[in-house]
Nucleic acid binder design. Structure first.
Length: 488
RNA sequence: GCCCCCAUCGUCUAGUGGCCUAGGACACCGGCCUUUCACGCCGGCAGCACGGGUUCGAAUCCCGUUGGGGGUGCCA
């Protein structure tokens, strides 16, 4: 137990802390190792169950509600969660709204929604700093009474000694040392009476019995201050600190709201899956020992160690995120993929025309061509629009060649009464192409442009089959007419 | 300015004194497959910032240089 000055019960308002008051809980630690089977999938191969009795870890994720959840905050939340789950410890959500403007409900809702989307869950109710002002005030009064702090222009400053050092052993960075003489007397209570970040931080980490503080590297320099306050509160111990490397942009600068695309919800809206986001974020500053990057979160939990986090900053690479997302998308079964597409389909101007049966049939055609879900609907529009939107460049490139009109003429003639089966259409077009000394790759081009409006897209014969004979013939007829008109 | 931190392919990483002729992934470039585009497969390009130590031996340990980043608020 940490020692506290004054009335100890005053610090114990949280019911979840009762267990801690009565002593540390003991628990077994399970470890699991993975190996790769020949098909490249991972599976647990050995379990060693060590009945090692340790106290329960308590971690916290402590965002300031400044808007939509930042990618960097999401990574911090994730690493806290991974370690808490890895050690079968507890994770507390603490909203740092000591500043009145930050206590707005919609900002706090956003944090909850984002974390829920990522499936990062917490133990117990969220702690709101705005509701704990009495605790902070008591602490400040105590420091004042003990002569550890003084009033300055209405604010209260903590007296920092001019000598000695403050240091800690960081799980990521090793020993970090600050000379006290470089630390100024800092404000612990503003002149408006509200507590500052330092005070709330120190008081809450102690009160909530936090054992591991996992946060961004941008907070290293506040750590000595928080340690001093913690000691001034009577604590003799220090939690384990792990300062995670910053996530940076191409210019190697800390990801910022102004310059960079940092809102988690933007990625969600573009069609990045939460599972893929988690997987990618876990790879920023950490790597699995076996080099297998894409794997279920359960395995990441098993393998994750704070000690293994590397200290240098990591660039956020949207391309790699999308590559990983593409893998997750391809791994889905077609029904789930179709289902996942729904919100993006609904956003389309042609969404009223969508026939669910046809959608179920054609969505899988673009599944392996999709890296983020928002890319899919534009590939599917011609299935549902009255007539395809003709891409100008594709038309110029493909249709202005003389053989285009000939191919379309032959195709129209044959398609009128051929069996409407994928294989049959395939063979028919190949035969037509051969009669013009063209390989199928070339022969299909004008048909594709006529039917889909573009030179690239999902497999043509499957597409035509889904569209039906009538529609395909009509679109070919329109294209032929356009070519004829252009001749005049 | 002062304080703190960081340094392996373009990027994310593996590597913790000999297994390293430095491995994987993304990106990029070829090729194969092929009805376009993708997917998949095969191959290629590319890195231990530099200089000193320590050691029989250093990407790995130490020191320095250079470069980069973060902080320096009565924001958090």
């Amino acid at each position: 137990m940490v020692g506290l000055k004054g009335d100890v019960t005053k610090w114990r308002k949280c019911p979840s802390c009762l267990t801690h008051l009565s002593g540390r809980r003991l628990m077994p630690i399970r470890r699991r190792s993975y190996s790769r089977s020949s098909d490249g999938k991972s599976e647990p191969t050995s379990y060693s169950r060590t009945l090692k009795f340790v106290s329960t870890n308590r971690l916290r994720f402590a965002p300031a509600p400044t808007g939509s959840l930042h990618i960097g905050s999401a990574r911090t939340a994730l690493f806290n969660w991974l370690y808490a789950r890895h050690t079968e410890g507890e994770l507390v959500l603490r909203i740092e709204d000591t500043n009145a403007e930050l206590a707005r409900p919609e900002l706090i809702d956003n944090i909850h929604r984002s974390l829920e989307w990522l499936q990062i869950d917490f133990d117990g109710e969220p702690v709101r700093q705005s509701e704990r002002t009495d605790l902070y005030n008591d602490a400040v009064e105590q420091w004042l009474a003990d002569g550890l702090a003084y009033v300055d222009d209405g604010a209260v400053r903590f007296r920092v000694p001019n000598e000695g050092t403050t240091s800690w052993e960081d799980a990521v960075r090793g020993n970090v040392v600050f000379e006290n003489r470089h630390i100024e007397d800092f404000v612990v209570r503003r002149s408006d009476g509200s507590a500052t970040f330092f005070t709330a931080n120190a008081v809450d980490d102690l009160d909530l019995e936090i054992t591991h503080v996992v946060r961004g590297e941008d907070l290293v320099n506040v750590t000595p201050k928080v340690i001093m306050l913690r000691q001034a509160l009577g604590a003799t111990d220090v939690p384990e600190f792990a300062h995670l490397p910053l996530i940076v942009n191409e210019q190697r600068k800390k990801l910022s709201k102004r310059r960079d695309d940092v809102a988690l919800e933007n990625y969600r809206d573009r069609g990045v899956l939460a599972t893929a986001m988690i997987n990618y974020l876990a790879l920023l500053g950490w790597g699995p020992p076996d080099d297998i990057e894409i794997r279920p979160v359960e395995e990441i939990i098993e393998l994750f160690e704070l000690d293994d986090v590397n200290p240098s900053s990591a660039m956020f690479d949207a391309k790699k995120l999308e590559a990983i997302n593409g893998e997750y998308l391809r791994a889905m079964n077609p029904q789930d993929f179709t289902q996942a597409l729904q919100p993006w389909i609904e956003d389309q101007p042609w969404s009223d025309m969508v026939d669910p049966t046809r959608l179920a049939k054609v969505a899988p055609l673009v599944q392996e061509r999709t890296r983020v879900l928002s890319e899919a609907p534009p590939q599917l529009d011609f299935f549902f629009m009255e007539s395809p939107e003709i891409d100008h460049d594709a038309w110029e490139k493909i249709m202005l060649k003389e053989e285009a009109a000939l191919i379309l003429e032959s195709v129209h003639k044959v398609f009128v009464d051929t069996d409407w089966e994928v294989d049959v259409l395939h063979d028919a077009l190949r035969t037509i192409g051969e009669s013009h000394q063209m390989k199928l790759g070339k022969a299909q081009a004008p048909v594709r442009v006529a039917v889909t409006g573009r030179s690239v897209g999902p497999p043509l014969f499957e597409s035509m089959h889904a569209l039906g004979r009538e529609t395909v013939l009509a679109r070919i007829a329109v294209a032929r007419q356009m070519l004829a008109d252009a001749q005049k």
